[in-house]
Design a protein around this nucleic acid. Structure first.
Lengths: 355, 355
DNA sequence: CCGGCATATGTGAGCGGTCACCTCACTGTG
DNA sequence: CACAGTGAGGTGACCGCTCACATATGCCGG
């Protein structure tokens, strides 16, 4: 016997499931004015007599009128929406930056769409264009990784875009890009480790978005060169604790590794685990420093020394940039916070016994 | 002196910064047919002669034509978009569920907007409506917490909605809701702990979305009652490691606490930290079990025993529900995975000395 | 050879707004 | 008192598309 369990799911195929739409002309009729006057009222105050405006407003909320965005857009009015292009939203940096963008954008009256980039599938320019809801849709790209960077490159030149990127190498920075100065932050973190007496500081890097341009690694290099110490080859990890763990198992087989600067806190977590398994005491025999200051990092065992990065502020700033690109009169966002080294338990002078 | 640094930011106020739009009529002219025929071609195949279709298609991609969504919508065509309502996107469950929704929705041709609910600000029905891009816009609500649950309640009845919720109490479940059976999962986890010989299992709960209905806590209760052991009062935590830590400091002052079931992995992390500071060895003197199986949990010290929850699958399922609500012909999504207890290092028989 | 009925295509209107332009008072001035 | 100037409001067209209908064309059997 066949049981139809679809009962109760009846509906029209039309989009609005019974939404009776009140139009500008209904309001006009109710208020005893022409539709144009209503249009004037709903778009910032133009020259409408106060009494008339009152009547129109009254009619508007009596009838529960809401302007139809599609009609507005079609009629050529600028529409406030944007699309965020990002990879995996469950990574701390991406998620937090997204939150910043969304918050700033919504309070500026923008609708925020999101399109998640698959790290494994490379999409072409045409597919990318298809992800934008309309031609000319403004875009924010979270380009901390290769998928984001590639999307940024592929974006047609005619779309207004702002992006969060790794710090660009030279002074020829694209004015539509924002970044955290994690190069400098990495330098400081490395100096800090060297200052603790470590002869060498190793680097477990994130996959770089542009291959030539891993800023955290560069900053680490800067500090090593500055101190005139040997530069061990950086190890490339992934984004997850697992990849940090796997990379660290290898790295820690060498007794000269006493300090590791990790590309992010998740990687650092993996390193801590590997150290524990290898019997290396942290921080006595091994110092571990991360990046991001995720909410978890202060509670790890040991609590993680890390560089706090203001992804949320960066997201806000990035939106601000885009907003000003679209409308020069848009307010300038407050700048985001500087990266800050948070020293906790996972780092200290080398007191180990093995080496 | 005043320097105008706005130079180079010139633009029209119109939305499309120089987007020349090709219309259906341009295509029609190029293909030597009427605009209606073009319309037929771009909307699934109707009765158009093959030869004609070829010509139209050729014209379409020669001219780079893309249909204007606003015009389509205005003309009454169902438009495929939805808005996800969620609180803090940087929490693992929310972020992962969002990813699931986005993935499923995009592959079904939907545009996904996102609107983040502030956990502290309670918004009213009107504000909520304003967050929907258009009247009748379908909505997915991630209602794992109070903010989401409240939004779900406030949603006007005329908007098509599907939601991820805590498991509803009775059989009178709203067919538009999906959930993970974390009540059963909590029961199993608690049975597991009891099976290890713990006389009592304590519960550090998440803030419940509906106050009367914390499913993980209920499941824990079920197991305790079933085993006929005393039910200690559940402790309410927040969502973060910090809140887990603070709650645990109090909880661990009592020596009879040998096993704690935590509302999520972040809470559990805080508990592990508190245990360490209190000198309680895990798992010998204290067993800790979490929920979620975040990517970090396997790498904590000790690795966390936890219940793996398929948030991504839940997101996909939830979208599928909405999709079928809008279009009965939509394919049924594969169900998400069952919760699964992952036993790691943080739990074991009580071998402690203090108690 | 004609009606009848498919199949393939074209035509008109209108979705709900906005824009450009026009009209209509009502003022104050020489 | 005629005049321009100004503020308040109305009218027409149109944005790009889809709908419902009207119109060719082909093929069938009677």
């Amino acid at each position: 016997m066949f049981v139809n369990d679809d009962e109760g799911l009846m509906h029209t195929t039309s989009d609005a499931v019974g939404v009776t739409s009140v139009t500008i002309r209904d309001v006009a009729r109710a208020a005893g004015v022409s539709y144009q006057t209503v249009s004037r009222v709903i778009n910032g105050n133009e020259r409408v007599a106060d009494a008339t405006r009152q009547r129109v407003m009254a009619a508007i909320d009596e009838l529960g009128y809401r302007p139809n965005q599609a009609a507005r857009e079609l009629a050529g009015k600028a529409v406030r929406s944007l699309t965020v292009l990002t990879s995996d939203t469950s990574l701390y940096g991406n998620a937090t930056a997204l939150r910043g963008v969304e918050e700033a954008a919504r309070s500026a009256g923008f609708t925020v769409s999101i399109s998640v980039l698959d790290r494994n599938a490379t999409l072409d320019s045409e597919q990318l264009r298809a992800r934008l809801t309309r031609p000319g849709e403004p875009v924010v790209v979270i380009a901390f990784d290769a998928a984001g960077a590639r999307a940024l490159e592929l974006l047609p030149p005619d779309v207004p875009v702002a992006a969060m990127v790794e710090r660009p190498p030279g002074v020829d920075a694209d004015p539509r890009h924002v970044w955290l100065d994690d190069r400098l932050a990495a330098t400081r973190a490395t100096r800090y480790l060297l200052g603790l007496g470590h002869r060498a500081v190793h680097c477990l890097a994130l996959p770089s978005s542009t291959a030539r341009n891993a800023q955290r690694t560069e900053g680490w290099l800067d500090a090593l060169r500055e101190a005139g110490v040997d530069v061990p080859p950086p190890v490339e990890g992934g984004w997850t604790p697992r990849s940090g763990y796997l990379a660290a198992r290898e790295l820690l087989s060498r007794p000269d590794v006493t300090a590791v600067l990790c590309g992010n806190d998740d990687l650092a977590l993996g390193v801590l685990r590997a150290a524990r398994e290898a019997g290396r005491r942290v921080p006595d025999e091994l110092s571990v420093v991360g990046f991001d200051d995720t909410p978890a990092s202060a509670y790890l065992a040991p609590a993680l020394t890390t560089v706090r990065l203001d992804f949320e502020g960066l997201g806000r700033t990035c939106f601000g940039l885009l907003h000003r690109l679209l409308d020069a009169a848009a307010p300038v966002q407050e700048p985001c916070a500087e990266p800050e080294l948070i020293v906790r338990e996972s780092s200290g002078p080398h007191r180990g016994g093995i080496g």
